[in-house]
């Protein structure tokens, strides 16, 4: 571990880790002092969920190098199955934190399984075709959850697709109600657990990236043919990164869902996938700290722009376009690269 931390990526990890802990401590201190606005307080858990989503997608796009346009699908799986777990355990497990942890684990496991199933066909494709198939899977998952009915009674779970024909006992309780989603959720998600989830994800990603598997994955990203020719099994390592990423998205989904009283499948549509992709690209591919900052900033930005009222999403769109234009402007890039530490003036990577 010590040897790993002294490398370049190890230093980056330490900086990221310290930044996250510092942000957590500051937030908790503000909350303790009672100086936190109710707007920010309500945003804390969604920020954590989106940060984890951004980390998860950054693993797929930045480290594995494949574009996924259906990440909200995994979030959806985690949200629905995690919430179902939390509702089912309501009587059995009295501690809300323990129930939340169970929900996160179940959400992550199921999203991982779905990620594996989706990965079998998807990872055989390349480039834009892979992207469109992930989009298709995201839409399919959304359609299924929109038409899924799940109930719980003394005999166990009852499942039906399309129609609400569950044949439940009178004591039965409808959990997932098709297009109505899950209602009456107890809001058990908390900021400390969200923070812990971010830390766990960071540690997992750091360990993966600095392992033999991680180096193989990055070799695939940089040159697939060269990697294959030195004997790296492509499918195995792609699958490893993809399933890890899906599981993280599932945990994020469970955390996100348990912060609201109702959750519907349409919340996790193409736009949500795109939103997370925006975090990842703005933060920088493969740059975890960038993803975290971008996710947090862009989740707060639309709320902070409330004073612009109806103009806020327009301003958001313009900011997004301008940031992309400025970041990719060669003149501005070479100007900033002069000030980078440890590099000789003006040399670009």
């Amino acid at each position: 571990m010590k040897r790993m931390l002294s490398t370049k990526s190890g230093k980056q990890f330490l900086i990221t880790f310290c930044a996250v802990v510092a942000a957590f401590v500051v937030m908790q201190a503000i909350a303790m002092a009672g100086a936190m606005s109710s707007m920010l307080k309500g945003q804390l858990v969604p920020i954590c969920a989106y940060v984890v989503m951004a980390l998860s997608l950054n693993l797929t796009v930045g480290i594995l190098g494949e574009l996924s346009l259906g990440h909200a699908g995994f979030m959806s799986v985690g949200a629905f199955l995690g919430t179902t777990t939390a509702v089912a355990l309501q009587g059995a497990v009295p501690s809300p934190t323990l129930r939340l942890l169970c929900a996160l684990v179940v959400g992550a496991v199921f999203a991982g399984v779905v990620g594996f199933l989706v990965g079998i066909p998807v990872l055989r494709l390349n480039g834009d075709y892979l992207a469109i198939v992930t989009l298709a899977f995201g839409e399919i998952i959304k359609s299924i959850f929109n038409n899924l009915y799940l109930g719980l009674d003394s005999h166990g779970f009852h499942l039906s697709l399309l129609d609400n024909k569950l044949h439940m006992e009178p004591d039965g309780k409808l959990i997932i109600g098709g297009p109505m989603g899950i209602g009456g959720i107890q809001k058990i998600a908390s900021f400390p657990v969200g923070f812990a989830l971010i830390v766990v994800c960071l540690v997992i990603i750091f360990n993966l990236v600095n392992s033999r598997a991680g180096r193989a994955i990055m070799a695939l990203r940089d040159n697939r043919i060269a990697a294959e020719s030195v004997g790296i099994p492509i499918t195995k390592y792609k699958m490893m990164a993809f399933v890890t990423s899906a599981a993280m998205a599932g945990a994020a989904g469970a955390l996100f869902a348990l912060n609201f009283s109702t959750i519907v499948a349409n919340k996790f549509d193409f736009n949500t996938s795109i939103l997370v992709l925006v975090f990842v690209v703005l933060g920088g591919l493969g740059n975890m700290l960038g993803s975290i900052v971008a996710a947090a900033a862009l989740t707060i930005l639309p709320e902070a722009l409330r004073q612009f009222a109806s103009y806020r999403m327009l301003v958001y769109a313009i900011v997004l376009i301008l940031v992309m234009l400025v970041r990719n402007n060669p003149a501005i890039q070479s100007f900033f690269s002069r000030f980078r530490f440890g590099k000789k003036g003006g040399v670009q990577e």
Partner: peptide, 14 residues
Amino acid sequence: SLAVLITAIGVSYF
């Protein structure tokens, strides 16, 4: 190409 994709999304939002 990802930068162009995000810009296109920005235009779509706009």
